[in-house]
Design a protein around this nucleic acid. Structure first.
Lengths: 246, 246
DNA sequence: TGTATTAGATACGGCAATGTATCGAATGGC
DNA sequence: GCCATTCGATACATTGCCGTATCTAATACA
């Protein structure tokens, strides 16, 4: 009989974030293919429902979507916020995946344009030729939701910052190598270039969704991206030099 | 005795949006300095509370902040969403005001740099020297909230689109004349330039708030803005020519 | 100043979502 | 195939918020 425990769910809550290797429960061992399965389905449902209805979505809504009842939820998470937080890894993974995909397209284009025309222009163009995935709207909605929630809940913000940094680092590294493959190197701190590009990306994304009649995401980036890239990179001489470092 | 009415509040709800001139109530005349006053205070409270707690804020929270009880609220609005919507005008006004203020600073700088160095660089620099107002965070929060809510509620989106367009037009016009005063003219459709700049602005704003340890808003814009402006404007020859128009 | 009317406060009833406590069913080890 | 255990469903009490229906105090006009 649970006498002092704050509910068994607490211990599992952070599993999805990767805190634990896996497979441990308060009392001992014995976990559970079934559990993983329902966690998975709850998270999938959470993704959909949060995208549709935001963080004010109900626990019951999530459960219904997943095909469970509230009992299953409370056995796996403490609150909707907990589930929401656990979902961040998906957002990060999807972001990276899309970036990789888009850049690999661009890379091919660069190979061809290398000899002939403008490398940057060609790369950007190919990058943008990727139609945005239908999921992008959902991802954008979720991103905004994360930002808002973090802005209002310091504790959540703190936890999120850790994950966010992980993603940011991967993106930084990735962008640098992508540029390198295009024969370019940043003339400012690569992380800053990465932030500038991210800002541009997010701004264009937001605007295209907020005003469906306005310019598309592609159009906006097509207009701005080449100038920014050319302005902040150079043709692969030495790259960025740490200022004040001998 | 109200027999068929859906509540007296309905008729007033749209006043703040400027649908009606003012001063009309279901039964006849007789409105009301007092009413305006409380509307004002409710909206002010709404601004604060929505920024702090988002659209899931409670009617009671708003009323408490304003120093009223729920009775006052229902006498003026139907739902929190109604109040939220009415607040958009404030957002628009603040946006324009800030833009004007910032550009008027930049204008002065241009006057001085005209003869000497780089006009664009000087203007951007001065534009950015304006410290962001402490309210900016609240405005950003609210903007995101509008975007999210509109993305999820088509009806709200439709109503909002009207107001948004109004603001957009003002911004467009404003940016064009600001550029002109700096001796520049757009080489693409001015509205598109306006959107690009807005996207950049919003992206930088978001990022600076989402990641307080990262580059500031100013830093991000300082890095990107000059290249975009130079890329999409020219030194005031003729300006943009409608394509396919003789 | 007196009176008609309106703004806002107070007092319900109702509902939707929550969290817990308990129970039956599925699962994995033997 | 049996048993120990855990997972998820069900039942229940509770709470918070909403919207309406009155009621009282403030306001405009005579």
């Amino acid at each position: 009989m649970s006498s002092e425990s704050p509910g068994p769910a607490a211990a599992f809550a952070s599993v999805a974030v990767g805190e634990f290797g896996d497979d441990l429960t308060p009392t001992g061992r014995r976990v559970t293919r079934r559990r993983q399965r329902t966690r998975e389905r709850l998270m999938e449902a959470g993704f959909e429902v949060f995208a549709e209805r935001g963080l004010s979505a109900t626990i019951e809504e999530v459960c219904e979507r997943a095909g469970y009842t509230r009992g299953a939820f409370y056995s796996n998470f403490r609150t909707t916020e907990e589930l929401f937080f656990a979902l961040y890894e998906r957002l990060a993974a999807a972001t990276l995946a899309r970036a990789r995909e888009a850049v690999s397209m661009a890379r091919d284009a660069v190979g061809q344009a290398q000899s002939g025309g403008d490398v940057v222009e060609a790369a950007v163009e190919e990058f943008l030729s990727l139609a945005m995935s239908p999921d992008d709207r959902s991802w954008w909605l979720l991103s905004s939701e994360y930002a808002l929630h973090a802005a209002r809940d310091p504790e959540f913000a703190e936890r999120l910052a850790v994950l966010r940094k992980r993603l940011q680092d991967e993106l930084d590294h990735f962008i640098v190598s992508a540029l390198a493959q295009a024969g370019l190197s940043a003339t400012i701190q690569p992380e800053k270039l990465s932030r500038v590009l991210t800002a541009l990306h997010m701004g264009a994304l937001s605007q295209s969704f907020e005003d469906p009649d306005g310019p598309t995401y592609q159009e906006l980036l097509r207009l701005a991206l080449p100038f920014v890239i050319r302005g902040l990179t150079e043709p692969r001489s030495g790259g960025w030099h740490e200022p004040g470092q001998g």
